[in-house]
Amino acid sequence: MPSADVSREDLVKFLCETGAWTLINERPFDIVPDIESKPENIFISTFDTAPLAPNNNLIVQGNEAAFQTGIDVLSRLTEGKVFLGLDGNKGAKLSSAFTQATNAVRHYFSGSHPAGNVGVQIHHIAPIKPGKKVWTISVQHTIALGKLMLTGEMHRTVTVAITGNEILHPHYVSTYAGASVKEILEGNTSDAKLRIISGDVLSGKQVMADGYLNPNDDQITVISEGDHYELFGWLLPLSPRPSVSGTFPNALFPNMKFDANTNTHGEKRAFVVTGQYEEVLPMDIYPQHLFKSIIFRDVEQMEGLGINELSEEDVALCEFVCTSKQPLQQLLREGLDYMRTEA
């Protein structure tokens, strides 16, 4: 185990040998960082605002010391700072692990999703400069990193939230990263045709019923498939559905609760509506122009319009609200991959 005054080089070597290096995520591109990589800053979002996301204040309970140790290690890996994004919403009960963290700069963010997305927080704290890299790491991974430094052992246990309207008893479960979905969900789902998602409904990945969790995810969401026709469903929907538009009754009853399914509620079309992405992306970015520049593969324009500041989860809400049903997360990934090969 490395001592407290070990060189950065040896620390990196230790992290690589123990596999802890893969806990770190590098932006742009959302990749495991290169061993030579030196981040400008490191960012941790301590709250998740995605639909039905786990509560990190609960997860950090009993792991306060490990979390702090994790921050301490991270602060030695960057010449910049470690930034913590905290939930600034009224009534939020924050763990002392977050509010009293040392060796880190705290920033409070208020508002609904995507306020908890680390990408949005980076944009408002210290945006990524062209040619520079930053690291991000989740709360659970920071705890794992801390435990490694405290005990010398790499624990890949993770607390997972079992959520979604087809789950009979939503709860948390402590398991191994990449656990079997079948074992976790056994006897706890409804009889409907199910969509099992590793992650949340906006940017999670679909997994088969006998598949495994994505090792980086701390949430499973199960919803019903919406593969049915609906008579005049576009005009006079019989069942409530999520929408940000003012054309559904939901607009008048913001606290209305209902089941969501995977129906696309319409077909893919060319970009028509403008301004709707900006409303759900609190960043100084012009998403539609960026997506168009991705479509015609203009690297300069992509970079100029801020593709490096985005990852799939940041544009997930744009994709959700998109009237033209464009596959924006896929487009963004194509753009990021293209940028990487071109660079």
């Binding site: 969509r195 998602i197 409904v201 906006l202 940017s203 999670g204 679909q206 969401t221 919803i223 498939e225 919406g226 593969d227 049915h228 026709y229 576009w234 929907p237 559905r241 999520p242 929408s243 940000v244 538009s245 054309t247 559904f248 969501a260 399914n261 995977t262 129906n263 696309t264 509620h265 319409g266 077909e267 079309r269 028509v272 799939e312 997930a316 994709e319 959700f320 609200v321 998109c322 009237t323 033209s324 049903k325 596959p327 924006l328 997360q329 896929q330």
Partner: peptide
């Protein structure tokens, strides 16, 4: 009756 594939799993009820 199309369902989401890749990307978001739920879509807004609004279409063109």
């Amino acid at each position: 009756n199309t369902v989401t594939k890749g990307g978001v799993h739920i879509r807004d009820g609004m279409d063109l």
